[in-house]
Design a protein around this nucleic acid. Structure first.
Length: 758
DNA sequence: GTTTACGCATCCCCG
DNA sequence: ATGCGTAAAC
């Protein structure tokens, strides 16, 4: 057991080794993009298990369950199968498991059903109606808005007024109504044994906070806690961690403040900065060596993130040299962009890069519609991630509703949904039936009793098929798949009336039926469908083997990497999202999002923006590249026209003579802090006499900001040769030139001039 | 009194 | 393409 089989010191760099072997006490690891964060966690799991720590007492919290499973199976390969027994998953799924055991401690008796976002909104809609909040004349917030207000309250530990003041001042006048609605919603969920996503965290927290005995038990159980993607946790989650660690200090959190992209869900990257306050003895380690990307890609991403107002302290460097710069390609319209991507994909394929090693990323799911059409036409297989989820489409929710009332007959949200499917039943009749069910008999088969009781009323015969179905699927003899089949044969005629495109939807139901086979119980199936909904290519391994191109939102691409990454729709009005263009902190998050997208690339990064694009706000944007890119030097980001793009164009030495001929940059004479301004250009790497290797971030009139590998960010004073020369940095000239073009109204699409780069 | 049909605006990211 | 409010139909 004590015999070390893994040579950790040899397999890890010194910072990683420290992170892996410091197993006792609080530890914060700041891990830059591609710095081997996952590797570190995997080795740490193996190290802990190898040292004889029972795997069941290790808790690994990750952002998706997929990530957790992947890490555990890698750890198992490294060591042995014991690693699979480590407890792990998302905060929500872990909360779910714990609350299934201790639900009665927080007022939920035996069992509950988890609602997804649209279920919450349905419930809120019903309550808004019931409380008559809509008729009060003025415009009451939409139910989706109400949902996000309530969610912010929970995730940011604020009261209603706090959230309204901060984020929704336009709804301050509805304070009292919203407060009443909040209370009603709480009660509604409790009565019906429903929990929304936030409840899984909130009740988990309550359990730990209010039940010292349970807290002690759980904390003693999970002796070693690891949290991945800590920058995307919210206040409530940080509190949960603190409480889980009440009996020991063994908490390791890993994160990167530059990659915090979930503030809409309450994430606060400040949790990282505050970790040492929560755990005063915390050690802090930084992983700064990047093993993923080439140095030119990192030069670009370093400069990109330096535009953030919140200053970060990481400097990423790589040993992967390359001549190939990231490219910003301008294309005429969305169709031209798709053609550009397809053409470039083919070129990469020709030099031996497989489709599964490439990805196209975008800000919003609909940005890839045109490309999807073009890929289909070109016969290029792809898999898309992000956007609407499988279990959220109407037809699946319809089928699932029938299964949910089976599991939880109190679930009025699902009753409501499935009753409205019956012809002749509207909200009124549905409500009456639901009221009757709730007061008389809490069982799915009680529909029959209701019919008998109401026999006189016309229309009750319409409920006959439903009553028969409920009786059939309640039969304990039936397997899960048989029940789904029964629901389908009841539902499909309804769907045929409702949807013109029913064949496509029936194929989804086929998939559901197949998917359900692996589940031992209805409850676990229902939980997974809301917590970890399947996508059609559920394991990344499948995807890699399948020879498909990946299309993904940036959010869904978090933590992944590809040899070639395209970022499309990097245009003003697209990225940053126009919804996030008002508040500085929202814009900063968009910048971090762009940073996340860019740091996914290992070898090639190609960013494109259409000059014209469709959509309702078309007129407002003049076809400029994303503001995040506009002032970035051509030394780190090459500009081309999409139609001119060719692999050879990249890395053409003739285009970047000064960069290639003097790659180590300036070594100023005299004072180490002085240099001629012309020696310093943003993005330029240099080897400084005193501070060693670094990269120039910004050049101002009298100083330059340089980040050094060993010494971090330094401000170097610039010696200016002579004012009469009017020396201007390349950035300045570049920015002015670009602005000039725009103001002249010179259209790039007109084909005047060639790549701006020369 | 209830249900349904139709025209309307809206459309980001996610456990 | 789905979710809303309103008007016609049962």
């Amino acid at each position: 057991m004590t015999e070390a089989r893994i040579d950790y010191a040899r397999l890890l760099n010194s910072a990683q080794y420290e992170a892996v072997t410091s197993i006792d006490g609080p530890l914060l690891v700041i891990a830059g993009a591609g710095s081997g964060k996952t590797r570190t966690l995997v080795y740490r799991v193996a190290y802990l298990v190898e040292r004889g720590i029972p795997p069941e007492s290790i808790l690994l919290l990750t952002f998706t369950r997929k990530a957790a499973m992947e890490m555990l199976s890698r750890a198992s390969e490294l060591l042995d199968g014991r690693c699979q027994r480590v407890a792990g998953g998302t905060f929500h799924s872990t909360g779910n498991q714990i609350l299934r055991q201790y639900g009665d401690c927080v007022g939920y008796g035996n069992g509950f059903t988890i609602m997804d976002r649209s279920d919450s909104e349905d419930a809120l809609g019903l309550l808004i109606d019931r409380l008559g909040l809509k008729s009060s004349g003025r415009r009451f917030p939409k139910k989706s808005t109400v949902n996000s207000i309530f969610s912010k309250m929970v995730n940011c530990s604020l009261d209603l007024d706090g959230v309204l003041d901060e984020n929704f001042p336009q709804f301050l006048e509805f304070g009292a109504d919203l407060q009443g609605l909040y209370v009603a919603y709480e009660q509604y969920k409790l009565e019906q044994r429903l929990m929304d996503y936030d409840d899984l965290l909130r009740h988990w927290w309550r359990l730990l906070e209010e039940q010292p005995a349970v807290r002690k038990l759980l904390s003693q159980n999970y002796r070693y806690i690891m949290v991945d993607e800590y920058q995307d946790t919210n206040l409530l989650q940080a509190e949960i961690i603190r409480l889980l660690a009440s009996e020991h200090p063994n908490v390791m959190v890993v994160g990167d403040d530059s990659q915090s992209i979930y503030s809409f869900r309450g994430a606060r990257f400040r949790n990282i900065m505050d970790f040492p306050k929560l755990f005063p003895q915390a050690r802090v380690l930084k992983l700064e060596q990047n093993y993923r990307s080439t140095q030119p890609i990192l030069d670009f991403t370093n400069v990109l993130i330096s535009q953030a107002r919140e200053q970060y302290t990481k400097y990423l460097f790589s040993r992967r040299e390359s001549e190939v710069l990231p490219v910003l390609a301008s294309v005429g319209g969305e169709r031209d962009q798709s053609l550009f991507v397809v053409r470039a994909l083919r070129e990469f394929q020709l030099v031996g890069i497989a489709l599964e090693d490439m990805a196209v990323l975008f800000r919003a799911s609909f940005h890839s519609y045109d490309l999807e059409v073009e890929l289909a036409r070109a016969g290029i297989p792809f898999a898309k991630y992000g956007g609407l989820r499988f279990a959220e489409s109407a037809h699946l929710k319809d089928v699932i509703a029938h299964l949910r009332v089976l599991h939880n007959p109190l679930d009025a949200v699902s009753w409501h949904r499935l009753l409205l499917l019956v012809e002749g039943i509207g909200p009124r009749t549905a409500q009456r039936l639901i009221n009757w069910l709730m007061t008389h008999a809490a069982s799915a088969t009680a529909v029959r009793d209701y019919i008998s009781e109401q026999k006189k009323t016309a229309g009750m015969t319409r409920l006959e098929p439903l009553a028969a179905l409920m009786e059939e699927i309640t039969d304990p003899q039936r397997t899960l798949v048989e029940r789904i089949q029964a629901v389908r044969s009841y539902y499909e005629p309804i769907a045929m009336r409702k949807y013109d495109d029913y064949p496509k939807r029936f194929r989804d139901l086929d998939f559901l039926e197949e998917w359900a086979e692996q589940y031992p119980s209805l409850q676990t199936l229902l939980t997974d469908l809301t917590l970890e909904p399947p996508d059609f290519f559920s394991h990344k391994a499948d995807l890699r083997e399948s020879g498909r191109l990946t299309l993904s939102t940036v959010h869904s691409a978090k933590g992944l990497e590809w040899r070639v990454v395209f970022i499309i729709a990097a245009a003003e009005g697209r990225f940053p999202s126009p919804y996030a263009s008002y508040r500085t902190e929202d814009l900063e998050e968009e910048l971090r999002l762009f940073y996340v997208a860019s740091t996914r690339a290992k070898d090639h990064l190609l960013i494109s923006y259409p000059m014209r694009f469709g959509g309702f706000q078309e007129q407002d944007y003049g076809g400029r590249p994303s503001p995040f890119l506009q002032s970035i030097s051509r030394r780190v980001l090459q500009r081309v026209y999409g139609e001119d793009f060719h692999l050879k164009l990249q890395g053409d030495d003739a285009k970047q003579p000064e960069r290639r001929k003097n790659p180590t940059g300036a070594k100023p004479e005299g004072s180490p802090l002085q240099a001629q301004r012309a020696d310093y250009l943003p993005g330029q790497r240099l080897d400084h006499a005193e501070f060693g290797r670094g990269v120039v971030l910004k050049v101002e009139s009298h100083h330059a900001v340089v980040v050094f590998e060993k010494h971090g960010k330094k401000i170097l004073e610039l010696h200016i040769p002579s004012p009469s020369t009017g020396a201007e940095s390349a950035t300045r000239r570049g920015a002015d030139a670009e602005r000039g073009r725009r103001e002249d109204g010179e259209s790039m699409g007109a084909g005047v001039g060639k790549p701006w780069d020369q």
